[in-house]
Design a protein around this nucleic acid. Structure first.
Lengths: 146, 146
DNA sequence: GGATAGTGTTGGTCAGGCCAATGTTGGAGT
DNA sequence: ACTCCAACATTGGCCTGACCAACACTATCC
């Protein structure tokens, strides 16, 4: 009835972009429960793993445009999950820091996200999940900057 | 320097959505050469494989919202790749048909898209490409409307 | 000192995926 | 025959994520 054209179904680019739609849906549904957006998680994670950073640095690490980092940090500051202060050593630069509230939010999101991974890969046994992750990492690395 | 947070890099949802960004970029770059958009290809492919159809049917087969099908078909009609006429048997329904120009455009896009698949999966040997495609299909099928 | 690269910010664009409301039409139930 | 419901096409709006261009400022390198 609602059969997909073979041309599409067979193409990796189709599979990836369509699966990404479902992944995004699952993720944003999960995050909605925590009142957060996708960009927020990326930034909180980067701050937690690499410590305080400038907005430009965050953008590079999270694959977010600098202009979008501004808005996301604005949101995080308003929610109290992050602090923004001018970098004392570097005039124009900002220094973004994780607050304890931010750490708690990050933990919460981590939990939600683990559940999402499970829903996303539901039909696959553990071995296949690992294989898929490895192959995707390999391909993605090839398209990443340097 | 631009290291990605481990939390992200390890999550299938991240790998899929990020890879989808690159896939979309490659596809749209390729399609730009033919002056077409992503929705166009889907619709042309569905018409070619399943024959003339109503817009609602196209939407279901191509995973496009009804309202977006309207705009896409408008564009295709303007380009002469498709014909739209009221279905004689079914009052409100439209009947969308592929023109010979549409067939040519589809062939052209097919070629462009094959090249894109190659660029996308460049780092993978043939066997891995097949494995990846199989796993993605499996996962995607699980999230599709039965 | 003057060119050059990096930084934060504003504001705008785009594709893709959605939803709600409206007017219309076919068909099923009774 | 009449009513009610489901399907269809269309308009108009919204959201996320990813971009780009321009501006003002700062640091650094030659």
């Amino acid at each position: 009835m609602n059969e997909i054209p073979q041309r599409l179904a067979a193409k990796p680019s189709w599979l990836i972009t369509q699966l990404a739609v479902h992944a995004r849906r699952l993720v944003s549904e999960g995050f909605a429960a925590a009142g957060a957006r996708g960009y927020h998680y990326r930034i909180l994670a980067a701050l937690d793993e690499f410590g305080p950073a400038s907005q430009a640095q965050l953008g590079r690490r999270c694959r977010i445009d600098r202009s979008d980092v501004v808005a996301a940090v604005n949101g995080l500051v308003e929610l109290g999950h992050v602090d923004r202060a001018p970098d004392p050593d570097h005039g124009r630069r900002n220094r973004v820091t994780l607050t304890s509230s931010g750490v708690r939010q990050l933990r919460r999101m981590d939990g939600l996200l683990d559940q999402v991974q499970d829903d996303l890969l539901a039909p696959l046994p553990a071995a296949d999940r690992q294989t898929l992750t490895r192959l995707l990492s390999q391909v993605l690395a090839h398209h990443e900057p340097e």
